[in-house]
């Protein structure tokens, strides 16, 4: 090896950098690994080291009807809220991008405002409104409540993508004989599709684990986070850890799907 006076300090710098990265990763992921580990632990108490491997907690989940209902409700709410936000948010983003109308800037700000509002405020105000117009609380009111906050997410993401799309693409389509609708479906939509999908996935996840708004707006039905929250009053059980592990798994699969989806599109 040739003697390089900078070699040693470079190794030191590299080592320091790697340590830092490892620390950040640990900070992010150690809690999740602990959760997963305890979900397979045969002992009921949450103490290290684990006493043995078991699938009992998962078996227990399989027979828990209350939990099943909560999961179904959560999927129903998250799906409904995602569809509703996309139906409102995507056209809103297109309108802001494409048209100049009086009060456009105000509209842009106002549509983003609900994201910054604390969930509690959204929850209480929506509760007031539903009492006022006499709509009974149900999972549907939860969907409406989630949608108000999530529209901002969808509009921001889709609008940002539209802004990065050169205006000349749409003009080129018109130039080549496409009417405005044809140009939208042939050119604009395929180019913002991945933004819509990722905004939809994000909305789904945010809605899925939302508590404050749900707390105020749900009727007798419970969503999964509400259910977990209520069981926690009896302390953390390995059962809850098992639910958590399943959620981590599902999220991981969703992330993989969305990454593969965008990747495939880029290569095509």
């Amino acid at each position: 090896m040739t003697a390089n006076p900078y070699q040693a300090s470079r190794y030191a710098a590299d080592a320091a950098f790697m340590t830092f990265i490892a620390a950040v990763m640990a900070f992010l992921y150690v809690p999740i690994w602990v959760l997963i580990a305890f979900s397979f632990n045969s002992s009921r108490s949450l103490s290290w080291p684990p006493t043995g491997f078991t699938l009992d907690w998962y078996a227990k989940l399989a027979t828990n009807d209350g939990l099943h209902a909560a999961i179904r409700n959560s999927f129903y709410v998250a799906t409904g809220a995602t569809i509703l936000t996309l139906l409102i948010g995507v056209p809103a983003a297109l309108a802001i991008h494409k048209f100049d109308f009086p009060g456009k800037t105000l509209f842009r700000r106002l549509i983003l405002l609900p994201i910054t509002l604390p969930g509690i405020v959204t929850g209480i105000s929506m509760l007031n409104v539903s009492k006022l117009i006499n709509v009974p609380l149900s999972l549907e009111t939860v969907i409406a409540g989630h949608a108000t906050a999530l529209i901002g997410v969808v509009v921001t993401q889709v609008y940002a993508r539209l802004q990065r799309l050169p205006g000349s693409l749409d003009e080129a389509a018109l130039d080549l004989g496409a009417g405005p609708w044809r140009s939208f479906f042939d050119i604009t939509l395929p180019n913002i599709r991945s933004a819509i999908i990722s905004a939809g996935l994000l909305s789904f996840v945010l809605s899925f684990d939302e508590i404050p708004v749900t707390y105020f707006l749900t009727g007798r039905d419970n969503t999964l986070p509400m259910y977990i929250y209520s069981t926690l009053r009896r302390g953390i059980t390995p059962e809850i850890n098992a639910v958590g592990t399943i959620i981590v798994l599902i999220s991981f699969v969703l992330i993989c799907i969305s990454v593969m989806g965008t990747k495939e599109r880029d290569q095509k």
């Binding site: 389509a173 130039d175 009417g179 042939d186």
Partner: peptide
């Protein structure tokens, strides 16, 4: 409107459709 004129344009940034192959780009019109 542009789609009703027998005129075509080469744009400064070319405006090729990024999600289409070269063949599809040319075939689009």
């Amino acid at each position: 409107p542009p789609y009703r004129r027998a005129v075509n344009m080469v744009f400064q940034d070319y405006a090729l459709f990024p999600h289409m192959t070269v063949g599809d780009n040319v075939a689009y019109g």
